[in-house]
């Protein structure tokens, strides 16, 4: 195996353990925003999509690149926005008791 590939595997394994450590303490009430926020982060594929579609080599690669940029952008923009929308509702509100 090439050194680049091995260091990729090392990064993957370590990052997975960081993820397990960081996320295992999230309270159940935040599970949905955690999931949609994580989903937005998985839109990091957009970096690959940008690289692939900008190389301008042939029609097929360009069309595939365009579709990749589109789907990844849906993921990124939609994911972060909807997470923000949910978390806005979770913010501490003054308890309304007019009695």
């Amino acid at each position: 195996m090439s050194a680049v590939f091995i260091s990729g595997i090392v990064i993957f394994v370590l990052a997975a353990f960081v993820g397990l450590e960081v996320i295992s303490k999230v309270p159940p009430t935040l599970h949905t925003p955690l999931m949609s926020g994580a989903n937005a982060i998985s839109g990091i594929t957009i970096v690959g999509a940008l690289a692939a579609s900008g190389l301008g080599e042939g029609t097929a690669a360009t069309i595939l690149g365009f579709l990749a940029v589109t789907t990844a952008t849906i993921n990124v923009v939609g994911g972060f926005l909807v997470t923000d929308r949910m978390l806005e509702m979770f913010k501490k509100k003054p308890v309304k008791r007019d009695g």
Partner: peptide
Amino acid sequence: IGGALVGAA
């Protein structure tokens, strides 16, 4: 890294 984090979550 991003993918591994989401995979773990």
